[in-house]
Design a protein around this nucleic acid. Structure first.
Lengths: 152, 152
DNA sequence: GACCGTATACTCGGATAAAATATGTCCGAGTCTGGAAGG
DNA sequence: CCTTCCAGACTCGGACATATTTTATCCGAGTATACGGTC
């Protein structure tokens, strides 16, 4: 039961997190983030709520309110975002369909899949929002400032 | 749109491929494989058909018919099986929701996710059915023969 | 006794439903802003 | 002119529909087998 395809919400959440990192201390409403990316506003709030429950973003209500990053960008890994939105369930959980009663050893298939899943998570955990920011600045130094100007 | 959860069919397909490797040249009907694992027989055939289209297993109709592995076990990687059942679509395909018109550079998020996906696939591609067979024999040398006896 | 034709039963294969999950939408609770009245 | 109060509008948050994927099932097409008849 390993999955090879992520939900759309993960992509949106990653883009929004990067946007919020660029916005700095200025709260950005979900509606503005949605308009910026051409996404359904009402559904995007669902992903942002998940990020809020995970302690990645913080929301402030009322006028001039919105979302902002609750942690320094270099402390937020891609794995954190993925786990917050798509759930932290193990990618592959062998349901033990092997015949012959209970087994004392771990299923070889489960072990192999767990190894692959671990490699995937390790890559995601090794990369933070600050790294993404650096990558973008390297390719287009003006992009962060331009995005910040549009959002705030 | 990265996914963290695979479909059930992948697990079934992997177990069945290992079973077929142990069965050798004797065709095994889908119904027997399903009964051995306590699975819905009609649905398991769907996964086996996918394996057949990928050239991993071969089916022989009529009495004494069934499925058998169409390739030596050491040439069938776990990635082959996963791709056959769950599709070979990329795990994460950035839909380019970045604002500001078409971009000349690749999305940094897409790059990072592709890197993680590649690590996952590399692990799966590095492990074959023969490796799994060796793992099982190391833990329980009698298991392959016992399974073969039950299936043939 | 050996060969051939035929009926049979068993196999897969794709087309067809039901369930679960992901996607998308709505309206209510809470809160900060801004202005107006009063001191 | 400064302080306080109040009304308003904007924000999020969770509960409610729709669409898509996954899971599950069925019945028909095709084929190797096994038997019976024939030479």
């Amino acid at each position: 039961m390993v999955v090879v395809k992520m939900t759309e919400g993960v992509e949106w959440a990653l883009h929004c997190c990067l946007d919020l990192a660029w916005a700095g201390d200025t709260p950005v409403p979900a509606a503005r983030l949605a308009a910026h990316h051409g996404l359904p506003p009402a559904y995007l709030t669902k992903q942002l709520q998940a990020l809020g429950r995970a302690g990645i973003v913080r929301s402030t209500p009322g006028p001039r309110g919105g979302y902002l990053l609750d942690r320094p960008p270099h402390t937020v890994t891609l794995m954190d975002v993925v786990a917050a939105v798509d759930g932290a369930d193990p990618a592959f959980r062998c349901t033990e369909i092997r015949a012959g009663g209970p087994h004392t050893t771990r299923c070889a298939i489960d072990t192999a899949m767990a190894r692959a899943d671990l490699a995937w998570r390790r890559e995601l955990a090794a990369r933070t929002l600050a790294d993404l920011d650096a990558d973008v600045r390297r390719a287009d130094p003006d992009a962060p400032a331009a995005t910040r100007a549009r959002l705030t």
